[in-house]
Design a protein around this nucleic acid. Sequence first.
DNA 1: TCAACACCTAGAGTCAACTCTAGGTGTTAT
DNA 2: ATAACACCTAGAGTTGACTCTAGGTGTTGA
Lengths: 148, 148
Amino acid sequence: MTYSIGDVVKKTGLSAYTLRYYEKEGLLPFVKKNASGVRAYSDEDLRWLTMIECLKDSGLQIKEIRQYIEWFNEGDSTLAQRLSLFENRRKILEKEMARLTVVMNKIRYKELLYREAVRVGNLDIATNERRFMQLKKKLFESPDDFDK
Amino acid sequence: MTYSIGDVVKKTGLSAYTLRYYEKEGLLPFVKKNASGVRAYSDEDLRWLTMIECLKDSGLQIKEIRQYIEWFNEGDSTLAQRLSLFENRRKILEKEMARLTVVMNKIRYKELLYREAVRVGNLDIATNERRFMQLKKKLFESPDDFDK
DNA sequence: TCAACACCTAGAGTCAACTCTAGGTGTTAT
DNA sequence: ATAACACCTAGAGTTGACTCTAGGTGTTGA
């Protein structure tokens, strides 16, 4: 079973431009072409696209994904490199989630503050309400940095 | 108390290029310049930079940050727009954290799998071990999509 | 047979967010 | 008074990841 580029566009949601671009960048080294140069994607190629999507979602750049694919093709001699890629990624994702948690707190504070400001029709009044001053103190080391 | 651009570079970690770029893009509409054109940043400007950093961290583009600053300068008539910006951001951050949680699962699975593969010296053996097949089934709807 | 259609390549264009260059001004230490 | 230094502007260049254009090929239904 093989698929035309149009089929793969429908299956993946990627554009045909993007699929050709990925190939040019070495992300799909196995895609076959028929006698007249038309691509015929295999199920294996589709699985690679799923993996590429995951690696992209985890924040890898295209050249890093290409590196991973090259390692994969070199076989078991590159297991250690691939393990260390996933370890690093996991650590980076942990940091990213911690970062987002901090940002989320700040944005939630702003949302609450502005909800109150809309209610009373004035930002300064809301900002100076005791409960918002306490909330700010609780959430931030240096609360004055957060009044813009 | 005012600060030269060099002082602000040290305080914020942003480059002087970036600070001038932000100003050109309308993110720092209040920075004063002395008679010979040299920037003198105020504490107020530094607080804006803190806010800009937060908005950038939350994923806003520079033109969206400029919009926010413009709304701020228009005063209480734009409270509703600003509230809705923060609401949207909070929702986007929630989605982003959910997305990262899913990605994290996949990457952690890969890390475990490769740790085992390194231990036994062969990827296929690790992949076919009962405990990894079960783990894969538990983690993913379509486990075969995840063998690359 | 001929128009519509899906596909092809090479290479140019776009966008965001910087980052740097060239050429100049103003201030300060020796 | 001159060299070093920090600063200035306008505008060009960079990077990553696409996205599109121009010009062409191959297949298929009326």
